[in-house]
């Protein structure tokens, strides 16, 4: 149980981000929630590849016969980070234009006709 604290941290980040997305009405705060979920997913991926007492999978200057962490989750996390930056920039530019057209960041102004 106590050995699963990093997984609990990743789950807590994901839940906090989902709470932010559901209960905040400001578009910028919803964007921050999305990036918090991304951080949680990245932390979960990194945690999956960790081996106790292992070093990073880089052979320059590594001692011989040392246990190394799994490189594939780290490479996929690198992919995830770059895609996160790109999508964040795209969402921010859309938010800038929505603000320019409606002079508001409230998500209820963009929705349908209830509320």
């Amino acid at each position: 149980m106590i050995a699963n604290i990093p997984y609990i941290a990743a789950a807590a980040l994901i839940i906090i981000g989902l709470y932010t997305i559901i209960f905040r009405k400001n578009l910028i705060k919803m964007l921050i929630g999305i990036t918090i979920i991304e951080s949680g997913v990245n932390l979960f991926l990194i945690t999956l590849g960790y081996r106790k007492g292992g070093i990073a999978p880089i052979f320059t200057g590594a001692p011989a016969e040392s246990t190394m962490m799994f490189p594939v989750p780290q490479a996929l996390t690198l992919t995830s980070i770059v895609i996160g930056v790109a999508v964040l920039a795209l969402m921010l530019s859309f938010i800038v234009h929505m603000y320019r057209h409606t002079k508001s960041l409230d998500v209820r102004k963009f929705g349908g006709d209830d509320q």
Binding site: A3, N4, Y7, I8, L48, K52
Partner: peptide
């Protein structure tokens, strides 16, 4: 949280 608790323990994949 339940699914995270049932993962393999941290550090020994």
């Amino acid at each position: 949280i339940f699914s995270m608790l049932s993962m393999h323990s941290f550090g020994v994949p």
